[in-house]
Design a protein around this nucleic acid. Structure first.
Length: 189
DNA sequence: TTATCGATGGTA
DNA sequence: ACCATCGATAAA
């Protein structure tokens, strides 16, 4: 039973604090995951698997521990980790990391689109096995329960009641969590 | 500070 | 015709 062969919400929780490592093209970059979203299966109207098995979504139903990368709005990519057992179409979207290694000091890695741009993740990484040396995850310092905040997922208003489920998880107080306008209240020092 | 809008291309 | 986004711009 692998780390990924569990419900998306469980994996989303445990991915907080983990390191995302991409080592290819003579360039090693590492980010610490600070924000995730769980997409829990075919019944979840926000999950792409709810559209059924198509060439695009097939990877979601496949074995866990593979990458699901897709193009959104014609110009950005979103990086997901396929979760749960084979046959269940679920995944975890990585929404933000904090720069650890191999990234410009000014690089922004908050938000799924910006993080893929900064780390160089593209459709070329779709369906890639996450146990490879070039693209994998490693556990980092565990985030205590009190350090985890939860709320509704971003940008899935079309999903009706499913949009209200608190499947978005983030590390409390992280300066690298995405800040959508609706919530954009900057806490002062 | 919040609100609105357009870019841009795979997918169905 | 959508769309798990972002950045520019306007308004206040």
């Amino acid at each position: 039973m692998s780390f990924y062969a569990r419900p998306a919400l469980t994996v989303a929780r445990e991915l907080l604090g983990a390191h995302l490592i991409i080592d290819e093209g003579g360039w090693r970059r590492v980010g610490r995951i600070v924000e995730t979203e769980a997409y829990v299966g075919e019944q979840d109207l926000a999950c792409h698997a709810s559209k059924g098995r198509t060439p695009r979504t097939e990877v979601l139903f496949g074995p866990p521990g593979r990458a699901y990368v897709y193009l959104i709005y014609g110009m950005y990519h979103c990086f997901n980790v396929v979760t749960d057992v084979e046959g269940v179409g679920s995944a975890v979207l990585v929404r933000a990391v904090e720069p650890v290694e191999g990234l410009p000091e000014k690089a922004r890695t908050d938000g799924p689109g910006r993080l893929c741009r900064a780390l160089g993740l593209t459709l070329a990484h779709n369906r890639e096995d996450l146990r490879s040396a070039r693209l994998h995850l490693e556990p980092g310092a565990s985030v205590p329960e009190a350090g985890v905040e939860r709320g509704p997922r971003i940008g899935v208003d079309y999903a009706g009641q499913w949009a209200l489920e608190p499947y978005r998880l983030w590390v409390r107080g992280s300066q690298h969590v995405s800040r959508p306008p609706a919530r954009g209240r900057r806490e002062r020092p």
